[in-house]
Amino acid sequence: MEVKKKDNRGGARANTGGAREGAGRKRIIEDRLDIKLYMRVSEKEQLLIKEKAEQKNVSVSQYIRDAVLKELNI
Rank of each mutant, 00 (worst) to 15 (best):
K36Y: 04
L69K: 14
Q46W: 06
K4V: 11
T16V: 06
L72Y: 14
R20C: 01
E45K: 01
A53E: 12
D34N: 12
D66T: 11
I29K: 08
L37I: 09
E30T: 07
R13C: 02
V58S: 05
Y63I: 11
T16L: 07
K52E: 15
R20K: 13
R65E: 13
K56W: 02
G24L: 07
E71T: 15
E45Q: 12
I28P: 00
Y63N: 12
R40K: 09
E71M: 15
N73Q: 14
E51A: 07
E2A: 11
K6G: 10
I49E: 02
A14C: 00
L47P: 00
D34A: 00
G17R: 01
I74M: 15
R25H: 02
D66F: 06
I29C: 00
R32M: 05
K50G: 02
N73M: 09
V3A: 05
A67Q: 13
E43F: 00
G17W: 01
K56V: 03
I28W: 00
L47T: 04
E71D: 15
G18I: 06
S59H: 05
N15T: 06
R27F: 04
E21N: 07
I74G: 13
S61G: 14
D31V: 00
K50Q: 07
R9C: 09
N8W: 10
G24T: 11
Q55Y: 05
K6M: 10
R9N: 14
R9W: 08
R9D: 13
E54L: 03
N8R: 07
R13H: 03
M39A: 14
K4F: 08
G18H: 07
G17V: 04
V68W: 09
V3I: 08
R40D: 11
G11D: 04
R65H: 13
G17A: 02
R20W: 06
K4A: 10
I64K: 09
V60F: 06
K36T: 10
I49P: 01
R40M: 12
I64H: 08
N15F: 08
M39L: 14
I35C: 07
A67T: 14
Y63L: 12
N73F: 05
S42L: 03
S61Q: 15
K44S: 09
L48I: 05
L48Q: 08
L33N: 07
K50T: 02
G18L: 02
R20F: 03
S59Q: 10
R27M: 09
K52Y: 11
N15V: 03
K4T: 11
L33G: 04
K44Q: 06
A19D: 12
K26M: 05
A19F: 14
D31M: 02
R20Y: 02
G22H: 04
K70E: 15
A12P: 03
R13E: 04
K44G: 03
R25P: 06
I35F: 09
E21A: 13
L33I: 00
R65T: 14
R40T: 15
S61H: 13
D7E: 10
V58W: 00
V41Y: 04
D7R: 05
V60T: 15
I35L: 12
Y38M: 10
K4R: 07
R27W: 01
S61R: 11
R65Y: 12
E43V: 05
D34M: 00
A12D: 06
Q46P: 00
E2H: 03
N8C: 09
I74C: 15
